[in-house]
Write a protein that binds this DNA or RNA. Structure first.
Lengths: 98, 98
DNA sequence: TACATATTTGCGCATATGTGCAAATATTCC
DNA sequence: GGAATATTTGCACATATGCGCAAATATGTA
């Protein structure tokens, strides 16, 4: 694990480690199709601008994918990318004792 | 997933989502026996007091276990507890679409 | 007792972060 | 074009966070 990889992983965990952002992720977990920000906004009781910023932060860490449709933005989880990183960390914690 | 569980998970991810704390965790990953704080401190280039606080934060989130031996404190990873939570999140992200 | 070692705590400081509001932007619909 | 809807951006603010230093505490050792 290089320093840069560790920094990236820390950034990912930090993005997930905020209650409203994690709520958005869990909300997206149950969506089979991409959802727009206003719909996602409903799950956390914050201003739409805050949700917008949280989704942007999640997109920057590649947790969610954003696509434009008309005047709305549709968000979906990058499921495998995120779960792979979480499992890799779990594996390291579980059995990397040498 | 209750609100309280989600808050707890967010707290755990926040604890892991800081570079120096994650470095400590990775350092502990490779330890087969508990290590003291000064030894762990070496892996991140910060003051001992900072390491002390980071280890305290990790202990509060039950990431590490602390035991006293003489004048030193020995830390070890709560491996299964942490990896289980990470895998549960990975599972939710992977295949909870209904 | 005196000193060394390991760790924590108090303090101040700089910066990051989460938030709401209002305004701006973009796009659709009438 | 003008109103409505969806989202972003600028701003200000309060709080949280990470950090180093110095002092305090705890414990082992000469």
């Amino acid at each position: 694990m290089t320093k840069s990889e560790l920094q990236d992983l820390a950034q990912l965990l930090k993005a997930l480690g905020e209650y409203n952002r994690l709520s958005l992720v869990y909300q997206l977990c149950g969506c089979k199709t991409p959802e727009n920000a206003m719909c996602l906004c409903a799950c956390c009781s914050v201003d739409a601008s805050v949700t917008s910023r949280h989704l942007k932060a999640l997109a920057q860490e590649n947790v969610v994918k954003m696509e434009k449709r008309g005047r709305e933005r549709l968000y979906s989880l990058n499921r495998s990318a995120v779960s792979q990183k979480l499992r890799a960390l779990a594996d390291a914690i579980d059995h990397s004792r040498q």
